[in-house]
Write a protein that binds this DNA or RNA. Structure first.
Lengths: 216, 216
DNA sequence: GGCTGCATGTAAGTCGTTACATGATTTA
DNA sequence: TAAATCATGTAACGACTTACATGCAGCC
């Protein structure tokens, strides 16, 4: 299970959990979230929406507040079936490549799941990264001969980045567990991940989020 | 120019600059270099090799040392045309997505090019990343309403990663320029990038390099 | 003698992008 | 009223993966 096409599906279902939306809007939001330059094309989004409609994962929203919606637009919302599928995709353990590709998306929609799933996703990713680090370091210790300067620097930088990512994941995992404990014991304003060093220049902001590069 | 298919081409040409190789070996090396989990399939490698052969970018090596090579293998080497193509691809300014995807490959083969190209690649990437950072920060300052906790953390982490990448690139650029100066003025052992903090457990190693995740 | 790994290749199918096509609506 | 942008969609094409097919060589 968990083929490639399901990435869009996961993203769409995740976004629709925030409220009904039409295709054009989904694309905009998705490009901001998963973006950093990459663009989801209409050519893949609209067919995906139709497919999800047929599969009864989403349905046309029964829009009460706007009787005369000016533009031609089709607003979708998640069905109960769609919600189940969302939870399945969020917790799905699939090919490593797929899990890599979807980590950011899953993470962005963590609020729509429960802690069990969150921990599974976080720990899964950490394990995978650690395994790769070990494999790389084994390779390093096995090989000899002179190293190309640039190749070595690239690889050094790569290892460092992954190690940093592992530490980040560990902090998140601790925070998750921390929530668990504190929720019962403390009345405080919930867990902070770490000091939010970079909470930006001006105003707080809405869901116009943007996604990081992660492990490229 | 600079379509997707050319990524393999670039990688193959780069590797063959280190010496003649056959397909199976290329695949192994490539998977280690570009890998961190991703695998280049035979289904794309072998056809690519044939295509490159037809385009006269590579040719079957005139193997002198092994008269009775035991196994069936086709060893390739770069032609002069191939070398030109390699230089073209190394310095090509294409779609941002393509440049992102190939940055690591280009970097890994920096030794086979000259400083002009190296600087162009490094500065090009730095510029692109900086532009994206600015765009993201503009978005942040434009939007209001409450942020989802996880989406915000993801985005914070993303920005931090990209900023780190930019700093890394800046160091590399300085080092490149440093080479330039020092080459003439100092007899020293060439430029160090930074302290090679992580130069590994045991032995130095050969080209069995591995590629970092970069910007995902 | 059989299993594992080396070595090359092809065919089918999937997935997604690019480009095209269409039309309404707001803004300058 | 012209341009930009909202909004949805389809058709053609390209690229890569998966699975299949084949055979030799070295090791136990």
């Amino acid at each position: 299970m968990a083929r490639r096409g399901e990435t869009i599906e996961l993203a769409v279902l995740g976004l629709l959990h925030e409220g009904p939306m039409h295709g054009y809007e989904l694309r905009k939001r998705l490009n901001l979230m998963l973006g950093w330059g990459r663009v989801l094309s209409y050519g893949s989004l609209y067919p995906a929406l139709k497919k999800m409609l047929r599969a009864n994962l989403i349905e046309e929203a029964t829009v009460s507040p706007a009787p005369v919606s000016k533009r031609q637009r089709i607003v979708y919302e998640v069905t109960p079936t769609g919600h189940d599928e969302f939870e399945r995709l969020m917790s799905e353990v699939g090919p490593a490549a797929w899990e890599d590709d979807t980590f950011d998306i899953r993470f962005a929609f963590f609020s729509s799941t429960d802690m069990e799933i969150r921990l599974r996703v976080l720990e899964g990713r950490r394990t995978r990264l650690q395994e790769r680090l070990e494999r790389v370091q084994q390779q390093l210790s096995m090989t000899q001969a002179e190293v190309d300067r640039y190749a070595a620097e690239l690889q050094r930088h790569g290892v460092e980045s992954v190690e940093r990512e592992v530490r980040w994941l560990s902090e998140l995992i601790d925070a998750e567990r921390g929530v668990h404990v504190r929720d019962a014991e403390q009345p405080g304003p919930g867990p902070q991940f770490q000091q939010t060093t970079f909470q930006q220049t001006t105003t707080p902001h809405t869901g116009e989020d943007v996604r990081p590069p992660t492990g490229r």
